[in-house]
Design a binder for these strands. Structure first.
Lengths: 159, 159
DNA sequence: CAGAAATACTCAGCACACTGAGCAATTCCT
DNA sequence: AGGAATTGCTCAGTGTGCTGAGTATTTCTG
């Protein structure tokens, strides 16, 4: 299965360097980085992609608390707190303490937040077409499906 | 080509929420995050995946300066400086001013750095098998190839 | 050879993303 | 009802990753 898998170099080489282009983690980082650069150029410099994910989730399910939101967009509770604080500071999101349960922050989009989301949806569609331009329709679908499968499985490993 | 592409909601909905699982950027972030979690559990808590990429590049081409290194691993010059500083602090990497060109830092692995790299290579192989376990052999190859194509093309867009 | 351009790096500032510790509020159990 | 466990959030600390400004060194040009 592995022709020269362990990478025993010739002569006195102790351990050969590895080809990073076969490492999914390295590729994932490059992909994410390339995406975030393109996002800044084609979608928005103010609102980042994770921020958009939060806006989108809150449009779909207003009234969520931060924990539920964090599960929804697959982000850490602390990270969500940071992002929500920034969005609240920019008046895109309204965050109020739940009077019925004093632990929770109840989150909703503001009218302005809905407007911004709408604008970003359009631009995001354009950007995704450019981003995936090197692939044909079937390849695009395959890529998204395979990433979702690997990411989903890895996320399962630690609830 | 797009059955209901623009997402015009029924009734008075202004702009429907989007399905993030069709957004490569969101999936890329999840993939990277899941990977980094698994890395911490299966490979190393001290040495991160980008740090390993740097060690690996320096094993392959000792004597590089930071700029060359940054192109090699697709990381920013500032980010490389941070990472190299951490690795140098842990005595994994030797960083000396080039006497022939006082602008450059010449970088090399220490003997200790080579030992650490060797240990990580083995563990990284194990981890990658677990990470990609949900896919069969052909799917793995496809996933890596498609990511590399999209990332490479996007990196081209801005030299 | 002196000034200008290019190169390599550093530094500050911001955003994301995690862990672990701690606080406050609620719920559960006796 | 009262103490324990759970839940939701915040805060501090670390690492990754970018931009933009600034510094030092080398190279290019007149």
């Amino acid at each position: 299965m592995e022709p020269a898998g362990t990478g025993l170099g010739r002569e006195g080489e102790r351990m050969a360097a590895v080809d990073l282009s076969t490492h999914p983690g390295h590729l994932a980082r490059r992909l994410q980085q390339a995406h975030s650069l393109l996002w800044g150029a084609m979608v928005s410099e103010e609102t980042t992609s994770p921020q958009f994910a939060v806006l989108n989730a809150l449009l779909e399910k207003p009234g969520m608390d931060q924990r539920t939101l964090s599960e929804h967009v697959h982000l850490d509770r602390s990270t969500i707190a940071d992002i929500v604080a920034r969005l609240a500071g920019r008046e895109l999101v309204e965050r109020v303490r739940d009077p019925a349960d004093g632990r929770r922050n109840v989150l909703k989009l503001t009218e302005y937040g809905r407007r911004v989301h709408g604008k970003l949806v359009t631009r995001t569609g354009r950007m995704n077409r450019v981003f995936l331009a090197p692939l044909d329709g079937e390849e695009r679908e395959t890529l998204l499906r395979l990433i979702a499968r690997v990411a989903g499985a890895a996320e399962e490993l630690r609830g």
